[in-house]
Nucleic acid binder design. Structure first.
Lengths: 232, 232
DNA sequence: GCCTTTTTTCACCAGGTGGTGAAAAGTGTA
DNA sequence: TACACTTTTCACCACCTGGTGAAAAAAGGC
């Protein structure tokens, strides 16, 4: 259902509460988010966003300026929530387990908040993750955008892993992170590819299946790389 | 350097050999490939492709039809080479090692041809891998495109892994493949993200570093998932 | 040479693009 | 009421989009 229709029925009881001001700003962001996630930055026009939000084209420019600024606003909105959730999760893990931390535990603390948010956070989050996955694999400005929004929490992960495995080299840690993020983003974006590939055995929407495998997979891969580097 | 300029100097000896006919068709594909890889399907116009190829816009439609057909032609050209290289590599591995096959060996036979081609195959291949990585993370038509071009060789991988670990469930195999392909495509697309993230410690162009880690990483992750599933 | 076929260019179209400026409508305050 | 301010709409612009049809040029067969 388009945001326009959603706004139209507007609740049905009490004040009609026509969306206005900041409400409308969020509505525009929601529509833009869904469209950007499905078609990419260049595959979406400001007119499409306006139409789905039930809003005049000029209003988008009034609130956000240029199209690229709208995109950044979409990207930023949830990045802050994400970063805080991950930071809190990792800090809690460090404080709870201290010297008994494991690689798999750290990785779980890093990834699981995203899975939980995707499962419990409502539909907008699925679009958002698909969007981030696309940006993550975009050359030119993709790397710069990811760095701008997500570098700090990644450094927190790497530093924590370095505490758990003090002998590991940073080169290995960063490469393992890259492998991890490739797997993680592809799983979170739920492209549907695994559904057809596996002929119905797996479903990309089944994040519980991801949870049951991804942490162990990444942790084992990580340990193997560190071990191999140590003996080499 | 643009293809237009490349064509202009045209060799310098013997027949002037102005590119024509099928040559020109390849030139257009080269230009399209580079542009699509950098900016995505919607981020490129047929005029840009024509300009970089040093060719009239109408010629593109003469040879390839609609823009989307041009994109598919770009995608198909190298997919066939890729699929054959991978299939040959895996068959050779199976025949050479037979009952002594290992998970890491199979995965190496599956991934290494791509690394080698990227290292030795010339610049066009780097663009191509970046392109495939983008499509792999594209919802809507990305999954369908990947399936159309790459499903058979993936099934060959999964079936071979099933021989090496007969007790493994297909569900686990497919999920592990998804994790693997996410890591692999991100590494092959050389987005430059790891360069800035690691502050110069790692370079995404360093495929030798990938080779030294990715096979072991994926194999260990794979074994861990299978083992966990077996005992659960 | 001539004729046919393929390749390349040119001029053009209908519709869509991001973006703007001014007017209009709404909102709060006194 | 009148006023200032914010939010929303409308009409519009210059430019670009994918794509087409016919003419021109080149290549090949005889």
């Amino acid at each position: 259902m388009t945001a326009a229709k959603t706004r139209a029925r507007s609740g049905g009881r009490g004040r009609p509460s026509k969306a206005t001001g900041l409400d409308l700003k969020e509505t525009i962001l929601d529509s833009a988010e869904g469209l950007f996630a499905r078609h990419g930055f260049h595959g979406v026009t400001t007119r499409q966003v306006a139409a789905e939000a039930g809003v005049d084209t000029a209003l988008i420019h009034y609130y956000f300026g240029a199209k690229r600024e709208l995109f950044d606003a979409v990207f930023l909105r949830r990045a802050e929530i994400l970063n805080q959730a991950r930071s809190v999760s990792m800090n809690a893990y460090v404080e709870t387990f201290g010297a008994r931390m494991t690689v798999e535990g750290v990785i779980t603390a890093f990834i699981d908040p995203l899975l939980r948010i995707s499962q419990e956070g409502g539909g907008g989050w699925k679009s958002y993750f698909a969007l981030v996955a696309q940006v993550n694999n975009t050359p030119v400005w993709g790397g710069e955008t990811m760095a701008r929004f997500f570098d700090p929490v990644v450094h927190q992960l790497v530093d924590t892993l370095k505490i758990v495995r003090p002998d590991a080299e940073y080169r290995d840690l960063y490469w393992c992170y890259q492998f991890l993020t490739g797997s993680m983003m592809l799983a979170l974006s739920e492209t549907g590819r695994i559904d057809s590939l596996s002929e119905g055995v797996c479903h990309s929407s089944d994040l519980e299946a991801v949870r049951a495998r991804l942490f162990a997979y990444c942790a084992a891969g990580f340990e193997a790389v560190v071990a191999r580097s140590g003996k080499a």
